[in-house]
Amino acid sequence: MEALLRAADHDVQPALSPEQFARFCDFFYHHTGILFGESKRYFVERRVLDRIRASGSEDFRDYFALIRFDASGRELQSLVNAMTVNETYFFREDYQFAALTSDVLPYLAGLRQRPIRIWSLPCSTGEEPYSIAIAILENWNDADEHAIEIHASDIDSEVLAQARAGIYGQRSLQRLSAQLRARYFTALPGERFRLHEAIRSSIDFGPVNVVDPRSMARYRDMDVVFCRNLLIYFDDLSRRQAVEAIYESLAPGGFVFLGHSESMSRMSSLFQPRKVSDSIVYQKPLDGE
């Protein structure tokens, strides 16, 4: 019984003081660009307390010193992973696809005399590259006048296999209208849906490690790179390498779309920020070699 009581006591963790919470949020924002407000206090506290326990720290003060001064950055990485939600579905942050079809593709069509190349990195289980394909077919009136390549890459071979299979459940399709479901999917037993072969076969899926120059070298002269919610998982050095690798993969004048909580300006000055429709995109200079 005494052991049970001790275990119960251990589970009752004190909440962070207002100063600790504010300081933690400042620190986390400084390192990731992700800003948590008071409305996210419960979410933040739960994960911080979990990490305090998992790292063997005595208390918040001990843990805060660990994440600030640990040069390896391992615990900071674990914290970032715990604080971010790795979720994907069709037409996530769809205002970026609207910016793609309303402004970016027409601009690139006037600039290029060759196929326009779009790269989804990382593509996870395929929802993003397929959303790009559907958005182009549905919303870019001049699409039939141009050739468009869509490439999609991930470091995880299992998610690539799922992406190629193109079978999704209700949760992935939650933001898709009934009309789009009917137009692009075939219903399968068990409330699952398979994307039509014509779309699946149009996309080049393949493995890539963003911080490995050898695998990144396959991808050159890209015009648009969707790299959303990936860089926040990297430490500083890997993030620099990844951004420089993306710069290398783009043709001059090409664009990068990042996740809504990410900012290229905090990572690199190689790109020029552009306001396009409701999105901020980052452009490789037209005279960028």
């Binding site: 050739a147 390549e149 490439h151 149009s202 080049d204 899926f205 393949g206 890539v208």
Partner: peptide, 8 residues
């Protein structure tokens, strides 16, 4: 308009 080009 979607054309496949296998980089991978």
């Amino acid at each position: 308009p979607l054309v496949r080009a296998d980089r991978a």
